[in-house]
Each structure stands twice: as C-alpha cells, then as structure tokens.
Write a protein that binds this DNA or RNA. Sequence first.
DNA 1: AAAAGATCTTGAACACCGTTCAAATTGTGC
DNA 2: GCACAATTTGAACGGTGTTCAAGATCTTTT
Lengths: 203, 203
Amino acid sequence: MATTERRAKLKERLIEAATDRIRADGLSSLRARDITTDAGCSLGALYNVFADIDDVVVHVNSQTLQHLRGVVHKAGHDASSPREQLVALAIGYLHFARSEPALWMSLFEHRMPAGVPVPQWHLDEHAALLEQIAEPLAALHPELEQAHLLRRARTLFSAVHGVVLMGLGDWFVGPGASAVEDELRLIVNAMISGLAADSTMRA
Amino acid sequence: MATTERRAKLKERLIEAATDRIRADGLSSLRARDITTDAGCSLGALYNVFADIDDVVVHVNSQTLQHLRGVVHKAGHDASSPREQLVALAIGYLHFARSEPALWMSLFEHRMPAGVPVPQWHLDEHAALLEQIAEPLAALHPELEQAHLLRRARTLFSAVHGVVLMGLGDWFVGPGASAVEDELRLIVNAMISGLAADSTMRA
DNA sequence: AAAAGATCTTGAACACCGTTCAAATTGTGC
DNA sequence: GCACAATTTGAACGGTGTTCAAGATCTTTT
C-alpha cells in the first residue's frame, strides 16, 4: 500500500477519534494520547500526519463546519420568503449548536498558539457561512452593494451567534430551551423589520 | 501583622499580577509560576490563598466585570432617550472590549474544570450587567413583566455581545473599527425598532 | 532472493505545566 | 530563651504536548 494512502487513512482515523473525544468530553479534555490510542496508532504517529494538536482540532472544526453548513442550508431550503428564510437559518443554527454542543463550541473556543495564525483555508470556510445569509438578505436589501451586504450578513450572523451562545447557558441562567428559540425568532424578525424601517427612513 | 491581613494583601498582589499577565499575553498564557514571581511570593503561596488557578481567574474576571459595569453604566448615563441609552450601552461595551481585549475575552473564554460549577456569586455579577439593559428596556416596553423583561434584556445583550465578539475579529476578516461601531449602532437601533413594531402588531 | 539502502514508525525521553506536602521558617505564649 | 503552633516554602509528583534516535519496514539492486 502506498505511503500516501496509509497516511490518509490514518489522518481520517485520527480526526474521527478526536471528533469523538471532543464530542464526549469537550475540547479542553482532548489529549494526544487518547486520540492515538483510540485511533490505534503510536503517539508519535500523530506528528507524522499533523503539525500538532491544534492542527488536528482545525481539521475537526473544518468537518464540523461543513456539517453545520449542510444543516443550516437544509434548514433554510423551503422557506417561502427571505424573512422566513433568515429566521429558519437562525433556528437551524441553534438546533445544530444544541445537537452537537461540544463540537460547535470547539469552533469558537479553540485558539491557535500565540503568534500562529489560523490557516487561511479554514477562515474561508467560516466566511462561507455568511454567503448563506447574504443571499436572502440581498433579496430584502437590493440596494446594498456586495461589500456592505457581506458586512451586514456578518453582523446578523454575529447577533444570532451571540444569542445562541448565551442561550446554551454558561454565564447566565438561561430560560428553557423553547424560550431561547422564541427569543431567537423574535430578535431575528425584529432585526429584519428594524433594518427595513431604517432603510426606508434613510431613503 | 495579623495573618488575615497579610493574606489579604497577598491575594490582592496575586490578582493584580494575574490581571497584568492576562492583559499582556492572554488567558491561555497564564502560568502559576509567572504570577507568583511577579507577586514576589513562592509558588506554593498561591495555594494558601486560592483553591487553584481557576479560582484566581474568577477573581480577575470579577474585577474586570466590576470595571466593565462601571464603564458601561457611565456610557449610558447622559442619554436623552431609552433608545439612545441602549445604543450608548452597546457602544460602551464595544469600547471596553477594545480597550481591554484580553481581559474582556477572559470573561468568556475561561472554563471551570469539568464538573466544577462557576461560583454563584460570580454568576450573579454577570447577571447584574443585564439590569443596566433592563432599565431603559422597561421604559420602551412597559407591558413586559419582570421575567420577560430580563429575558429580553438577556437576548439584547447576547446579540450585542455577538457583534462585538466577531467584530474583534478572530474568525472573520472584520471591517475596520469604525465600521463595527456603525454596524453595532445600526443593529441595536434595528432591534429596538423591530421589537417595537412587533409589539404593536401583537397588540 | 538476499543484501543494501532509503523510508517510515515507534515510544522512551524531555521540557513544562498545575498541584502537593514534608520540611524549614516564622510567629506566639510563657 | 524556649517550647510549641501556625505558616510559608520549593523540591517533587503526575500528567501534558512534542521530539528524535533507534528499530521496523519497504524498495531497489545485483
């Protein structure tokens, strides 16, 4: 068997093992020795395929992000209006966060070692999320040019992300699960209404 | 000198040293040996005054939170309307996050060891932030009862927090600093307008 | 097919981390 | 000044990510 191929299989096994560990115990409990044991390889083998543990996490996060993109896309697929689509995307985002809390958290709580930048290809994966928001947003605000549209999409995403983050309840005693969903619907609708109102006011 | 007093002074020195370290290098670079060296005490002395490193961080975060609360309160002090006050609080929050990024980040990226809960008194400090939002919000929505008001305040804070978080720019290539401020004003105004519109629609 | 050489894999060893606790130091009452 | 209690200390411990010399494996040559 070719070396490249064996390496690729090992890489997959390691990513899968790391994924399972993060899902079960959270990013902070991830250990190189656990990953390699689960993947059935030696400790050093990890460093033949990945630069370091952070490299593994980035690859796990990359897969999570692909999964997330699929789920969110599906959630917004059969909406009957741009407004409903934006709400559906937000709810889909919330549901994903709730279905895979540790993996979802890992997307945002992971930090590269000081000085090492996040790889550009992974930043691009994050940015790809925004395009799903930009599309219905463009329908609501055809007056926005590309740059402003993306900026606005990023703001909308950030607000939704904040509500979901706090809704998972680490710092505040959150209301029940269904209340968070209600709040999210409410606030997304409010943002859409308010943005429309502000637009017409300016015009 | 009484033991209690010496301990209190040491506690303060340790918190101050930890604060400076976090401010300069970020929470993830915080080391027990650095803190104790900076504070001019032995390594073990830290464990005479604090349960562990997380305990130190909670105390640093507590002070940061007090500072934050003061800054945000001041920011909203001379607003001429509830709406402007809410916007001012959000902008104040943004400015604080930008003036002390590492300390601000530490508030949200710090995690207790698995199974250990965040002390209740510190959770209460977080909750106290919401009351500053609840006050102007109550002026805009007198129909909301206490529970719903706090829930709404939490949602508003979460959305603002999300925008500020993403605006500091780790995952997305953010626009310039002033653009984030513009986006924040815009989205807070939109949420206020939208919430008002939804309220009248229901009525 | 066997030897020689290139390549890849391994896990003991290293540096560094938070935390502990026996020993040294300091404080207290007489 | 002495015995005894209370407090502080830092070497030592277990656990972490990472490295790299030594061993195992695969490839080529004769």
